[in-house]
């Protein structure tokens, strides 16, 4: 591989698009070429500068309220054109960038409406017998959609972590190494006291997004299963309502989406979402470790 080819591949490399023998060939070239190694380092530094230091503008709450009213007045739903099949959504966010949010999950052959209906069905809270069912006709559609979005976004972030071929942005040398790594990368201090143990080892940490809020991502494992803990500012986020179970110090809302269990709770100003395909009792055990009873 020559320098021109190597530099041409740097963009694909940072986007995670290289496959086959190409990544190894690129690495081999970089190992022996100081100029290309410098170019690669510069690309990574530019990615980091953009992802970590370019502010993300947020609309005012007043504008969001006015916009919601304006759109509601303009009229409900747009209908899709018949014919073209939906484009496949990305499998995962690309490495190296904080803004690289996981896109709207693949709708595959299902239309958006079918996806919403399905999501409403699986996202229905475990209500006690006789209690109103949120997914029943007449329930609050807006509330259900808001809940679905947060749950689905947590699953998407979990899938991004699982699908990544790269190691965690900070590999775990213990919770006292992972937590400080978030300083300056998120605008809050994630409160996670659990340092991992033999049952749930802490693998590492990375950055994620929950509805445009930067999130601290803690990666645990249970045997061969990945477990993702998202910690994020909860202010202003719609929160799933309905039945909750008491675990540790918190009331935890439990949902299922796309085959994954999602456990959500709040601690003061922070929201927590724990996502995995391990059995729910095991996830509940982890929640109790993360938020031990006082």
């Amino acid at each position: 591989m020559d320098c021109a080819r190597a530099k041409d591949l740097l963009g694909d490399s940072r986007a995670g698009r290289l496959d086959g023998a190409t990544p190894a060939a690129l690495e081999a070239h970089l190992a022996g070429c100081a100029d290309c190694r410098r170019a690669a380092a510069v690309e990574r530094a530019l990615d980091a500068a953009l992802a970590e230091r370019l502010p993300r503008h947020r609309a005012s709450a007043d504008f969001e309220r006015r916009l919601r009213d304006r759109l509601a007045a303009a009229g409900g739903t747009a209908r899709p054109a018949a014919g073209p099949s939906p484009p496949s959504a990305r499998a995962a966010a690309r490495p190296g960038g904080g803004w690289r949010v996981f896109a709207t999950p693949a709708a595959s052959a299902l239309g958006a409406a079918a996806l919403v209906v399905l999501a409403l069905r699986v996202a229905a809270p475990r209500a006690p017998a006789g209690a109103p069912n949120e997914s029943a006709p007449g329930a609050s559609l807006a509330s259900s959609l808001a809940s679905w979005d947060l749950v689905d976004e947590a699953v998407s972030d979990h899938l991004r972590v699982v699908a990544s071929t790269h190691p965690p942005e900070i590999a775990s040398g213990g919770i006292h190494q992972v937590k400080p790594w978030f300083t300056g990368r998120v605008d809050f201090a994630p409160r996670v006291a659990f340092a991992g143990d033999d049952d749930f080892p802490l693998v590492g940490g990375s950055l994620g997004y929950v509805r445009d809020h930067k999130a601290a991502v803690f990666q645990f494992r249970r045997r061969l299963h990945a477990i993702t803990l998202l910690v994020f500012p909860a202010a202003g986020l719609p929160w799933p309502s309905g039945a909750a179970v008491s675990l540790g110090r918190h009331d935890v809302v439990e949902r299922t989406a796309r085959g994954f269990s999602v456990l959500l709770w709040r601690d003061a100003d922070l929201g927590y979402a724990l996502v995995s395909d391990v059995a729910r009792p095991e996830l509940e055990a982890l929640v109790s470790k993360i938020t031990p009873a006082l």
Binding site: R58, A59, E64, L67, R68, L71, A72, G76, T77, A78, R79, P80, G111, A112, A113, A114, V116, L141, A142, L145, A146, D149, R211, D212
Partner: peptide, 14 residues
């Protein structure tokens, strides 16, 4: 089949 609802659009306004 309903497509992009107001709620779906609002998810992306940020």
């Amino acid at each position: 089949t309903p497509g992009a609802s107001v709620d779906e659009i609002l998810v992306h306004t940020g």
